Amino acid sequence: MRRRTFLGMSSGLGIVATGMVPDPVRAGGPRPDLIVAADGSGDHGTVQAAVDAAPAARTEPFVIGVRPGTHLGQVIVPKTKPLLEFRGLGRRPEDVVIADDRANGTLKPDGTPWGTSGSASVTIDGAGFRAVNLTFANLFDEAAHPEITNRQAVAVLTRADRLVFDRVRFLGNQDTLYVNSSAAGVVARVYLRDSYVEGDVDFIFGRATAVFQRCRIHSLDRGSTPNGYVTAPSTDITNPYGLLFDRCRFTADAPAGTVFLGRPWHPSQDPNAIGQTVIRESWIGTHIPDLAWSDFGTWPWEDARFREFHNFGPGALVSENRPQLTAEQAAVATIEAYLTGADGWRPQRC
């Protein structure tokens, strides 16, 4: 059966899962401009109140420090609030949890469903956002709501450019991390380092250009076959860069051979959504079978941009079902190529 993570336990997640330890330099930085504390000892009692209080249209980072505890309630970072940073003030990412509990099919007060995007615990439209040393979660309980069939429940939805998640956990089941952009054809870059993402169905998805470096990607056991799909990219055909996993670990509670690495998502049957997932120099567990990719409805996986390169571990095979990058292709499928852009952005060097 499906396992849900207990928020107060490390369970081998986050920093521990990637083999990392807290970096005092990266964990430090400027003194927070505002403090969130649920017990009333900070400047604000909720994360959203701190976001609302942050000045608009800043040209320098504005740091919101979040004290340990579970902070419930939907959070929206609007486009008018760029360069915000959420910094967890605990010792580990597990110590600070920002969470909500709605799904696609959960009804709003007006009786209409929230939808997938509306289900997000945290929505980020502000460019230059950064999160450090904390956890984002969607706590929707599928077993407690059998009447809800549309169970997509997003922990974080991103639609802005130049976003960084450093030592962050993303917890959910279906559609945990939605890396998107403001519109089809618009490039939005996201960099995730030493982080942890868990889920079951399409739990990393969207059209953003997103780089996962030294992250743990963990598939939960749904108790069914197939047990799920790790990625569902919808990269626009004009964008050469979709999802890149560099030196990551793909682990699972699910049985051997029951989870696909991905399938091509075509939102609203968009023919120009030619999804890209590239996994390179990463460890892959036994939950991934020889046929690692799946069709999505009538859209065949072979037409998507799915590739691997120099992966290892018991689930890392090379066969006709597992397309590989050539050495020449791998030389340009790098973190720098995905993120740098015309503005020279290099968050991996910070």
Rank of each mutant, 00 (worst) to 15 (best):
R189F: 11
R193G: 00
S195F: 08
S195W: 07
Y196R: 04
E198S: 11
D200K: 01
D200I: 04
V201Y: 09
F205V: 03
A208E: 05
A208H: 04
R216W: 01
R216C: 10
I217Q: 00
D221T: 00
T225Q: 02
P226Y: 06
P226I: 05
Y229E: 12
A232I: 05
A232F: 03
A232P: 00
T235M: 11
D236K: 02
N239Q: 14
G242H: 13
L244D: 00
D246V: 14
R247I: 05
F250Y: 14
A252Y: 07
P255V: 01
A256C: 08
A256W: 10
G257T: 06
G257V: 09
G257R: 06
T258M: 07
T258P: 05
T258N: 05
V259C: 04
R263F: 08
P264G: 12
H266V: 03
H266N: 13
P267Y: 12
Q269S: 15
D270M: 00
D270T: 04
G275C: 10
Q276S: 15
I279V: 15
I284L: 14
I284K: 02
D290E: 15
L291I: 04
L291G: 02
A292K: 03
W293A: 04
S294Q: 12
D295K: 02
F296P: 00
W299D: 02
W301D: 01
W301T: 02
W301G: 05
D303K: 13
A304N: 11
A304V: 10
R307N: 12
R307C: 08
E308Q: 15
E308C: 06
F309Q: 04
H310G: 05
G315R: 01
A316E: 11
L317F: 06
S319D: 04
L325M: 14
L325I: 13
T326R: 08
A330H: 13
